[in-house]
Design a protein around this nucleic acid. Structure first.
Lengths: 187, 187
DNA sequence: GACCATCTTGAATGTTCATTCAAGTTAAAT
DNA sequence: ATTTAACTTGAATGAACATTCAAGATGGTC
């Protein structure tokens, strides 16, 4: 069945699952073959190499995440309320079985050595998220405050992404966010 | 030169450097051989396997970190002042060339899948740090407040450990900490 | 219906991996 | 001086790794 090209989006989604869970180094191409159903030749023709596939998976994840953030902030009654919903969703995610933190953060930490290219991609996307927060905050606060609070938001989100591995920590994290982000319109 | 046993502490320190930077999967035993100067046989006799060496390195790192925290908090004029110094030190560390975040956090994220043993070690040590903060805070605040603020501290430290990869972010992080931890005696 | 460009296939490649072990070396015990 | 226990040595092992490529299959084109 040649010419009946595989579904690229489907392959990328499955690769996101694998790479997000195991990271770059601990995911083998043999696992990719098993997970995606593609044969090695097809993968290498379509994505070049392991790094190419990882990059596409990472970028797809980032794009979806950013779209999700935009949507939540756009549909909320206020920026503050949207941010609360966003933070609640992050906490909620951490209660999942097989919680995997955030693909971007994991990549930033795993591939930090020696100016790795994938590390740069992850970092750029995380910066994009911060810039997005800043631009939304500027609808309600002045420039300086918006910049500071965007940083504070990022620190808290990173914190939750790491803290969330602890079992039954959701309530504690919610309290922690209320402590550290008192300017948000909680509940 | 048999019987002239190698310096175990030295080997562990060198292993910390390697594993901290590259993580578990991306560090090969051949790199360990090169870094430590030991031959494979010696490593396997002394530590069992790669995981055994990694575990000792991780535990040694954790012990040193906790001792450092204790020392800073014990020698400060107040708990609050000690915490400020601690947080400043974490920010300071992030300005280093070859910044590597925190070995415990990196391990928690890298080896989270399937109840990995090393993940549990890292998580247990991180919980120990939180408990330590709580016990110091209880010298100045009541039980409930201490618990909440310990969580908030952990969230901020995790945040800084991830955010710190961004170049020239020290000042921004300092501002962010002042925003999120206003109960600390800053400056 | 013959052809060609396009895509798939999966066995094969050479490398690197974690780990082992028989042989070698030394310090202490006898 | 000889033995013994403790430790080192480094080549060898087999498995797993990322990647390649010649051969096969298919759909569109003339």
């Amino acid at each position: 069945m040649a010419r009946a090209q595989f579904d690229r989006n489907d392959v990328i989604d499955k690769s996101i699952g694998l790479f997000w869970q195991n990271g770059f180094s601990a995911s083998s191409m043999q696992q990719v073959v098993k997970t995606t159903g593609l044969k090695p030749g097809s993968i290498y023709l379509a994505f070049g190499n392991k790094e190419g596939l990882f990059r596409e998976a990472l970028e797809s994840y980032a794009q979806k995440s950013i779209a999700q953030i935009r949507h939540t902030l756009d549909t909320a009654a206020s920026v503050g309320e949207g941010l609360c919903r966003l933070l609640d969703a992050v906490i909620q995610e951490s209660t999942r079985e097989n919680y995997c933190s955030c693909f971007l953060i994991k990549t930033r930490l795993e591939l930090a050595a020696e100016g790795n290219d994938l590390h740069e991609v992850a970092s750029a996307k995380l910066n994009e998220v911060e810039a997005l927060f800043r631009s939304y905050l500027e609808k309600e606060f002045d420039h300086t405050v918006s910049r500071q609070r965007a940083v504070s938001l990022m620190l808290h989100i990173f914190g939750v992404r790491v803290y969330g591995y602890q079992r039954d920590s959701a309530d504690r994290m919610r309290q922690g966010l209320r402590e550290g982000l008192p300017w948000l319109p909680w509940e």
